[in-house]
Design a protein around this nucleic acid. Structure first.
Lengths: 205, 205
DNA sequence: CAGCATTTTTACCAATGGGTAAAAATTCAT
DNA sequence: ATGAATTTTTACCCATTGGTAAAAATGCTG
């Protein structure tokens, strides 16, 4: 098994190959539904070879959560106090929607994890999330206190933004089935619906 | 194996016991993550005994989807042309939110299914959904044409309502982790946030 | 209560799952 | 180029899973 020392050149390459295959399989089948055999096959290697680079299925899954978390949290980190608060939130929503469009696998991976009650990744996911989340909630609260956006429950505002944007990644099959619009137009229409809704909700009148 | 004839008294009882256990296991672990052994154990019977009443794991899952679908679609069916359209939509949102609170397992079951690309239940879920969905979209469209609610994309309005309400069931662990509010207050606050948002979005000004 | 149909139990099984041990091959540092 | 360290392959193993066959028990009907 691989040592805990700094990764060698080969280890870095292999881990990347494995993580890519793992993202595909885990996001498509969930933790229990995915098998390390299939992940290994998708990465073009044998199971023992995969297990040389990751201690086991759960360790691989945790590593995957960890490696995708930054990208997943990226849009929220960029939400800061610069310019019009309403437009700041709108820009955040645009970024989240773009995430759903460009990286649906990552979204589904975390959706799975949370849906099944966060059996693993409690610290991998929630600990880093909490920190940044609390800070942004405080920012929203301040904007409300300053009268720059309408006073609403900031937690539920955030949940609502998450729900409406991630929905387009997590429930894509349903939307594809029910929507007359197809892929490029669909996301434009989603944005054209969501931004006015949040503007009306947040603009002080 | 059980015949295709009308179910006997015993069959009705057993199928109920099994479906209840299946709802618990499937909603908690997903299709692949759940095992008929554990479902049988939870229902207080042996695996062969379960398999006498349902043809197999997939058949059981399909039967479960079918038996839960009515309850899941219930709130939407009640959306009709009576009284103020804005308040009709608000009432729908309240019902959906109440569903998330009272029947989170059903919500998670369908969320799972859709998240994993609707591998099964394509006809069990989507066919009945389409029919009622299209009718309600037409209703929303008519309200807009009549100038009784603001003109927005009715599809995305519906997705948004689904997303924001089901979120409280499907992502409950995350919300529980991040929210200062606990169970009775949490849903009241959710409603207090969502209803004004949709009122502002839909009220004609 | 006899006899037939239904239901349940018992005893299995093949496939797949995650994982290991150790030999073989390859890479790396001197 | 050689010895040590790393990486990969080969050959396994055990637990769980979905599922079956047939006997045993139970329920139902005249």
């Amino acid at each position: 098994m691989v040592t805990a020392e700094k990764p060698t050149r080969i280890q870095k390459v292999r881990r990347e190959e494995i993580l890519e295959a793992a993202l595909e399989e885990f996001s498509r089948n969930g933790f229990k539904g995915a098998s390390i055999n299939k992940i290994a096959a998708r990465a073009g290697m044998s199971t023992p070879r995969l297990l040389y680079h990751f201690e086991g299925k759960e360790a691989l899954y945790r590593a995957l959560l960890k490696s995708t978390l930054l990208r997943w949290l990226g849009p929220l980190e960029l939400l800061k106090d610069a310019g019009d608060p309403v437009e700041e939130v709108c820009a955040y929503i645009r970024r989240k929607l773009e995430m759903s469009r460009a990286y649906p696998r990552e979204s589904r991976l975390f959706a799975q994890e949370i849906l099944l009650g966060v059996p693993l990744g409690k610290q991998e996911v929630f600990a880093p999330l909490r920190e940044i989340f609390d800070a942004k909630i405080a920012l929203l609260q301040r904007w409300m206190d300053e009268g720059r956006i309408t006073r609403v429950d900031p937690h539920h505002l955030m949940y609502s933004i998450w729900a409406t944007t991630q929905h387009y990644a997590d429930f894509a099959p349903q939307i594809a089935e029910l929507s007359p619009q197809k892929m490029p137009v669909l996301f434009e229409a989603a944005e054209a619906f969501l931004l006015p809704m949040y503007r009306r909700t947040l603009e002080v009148r």
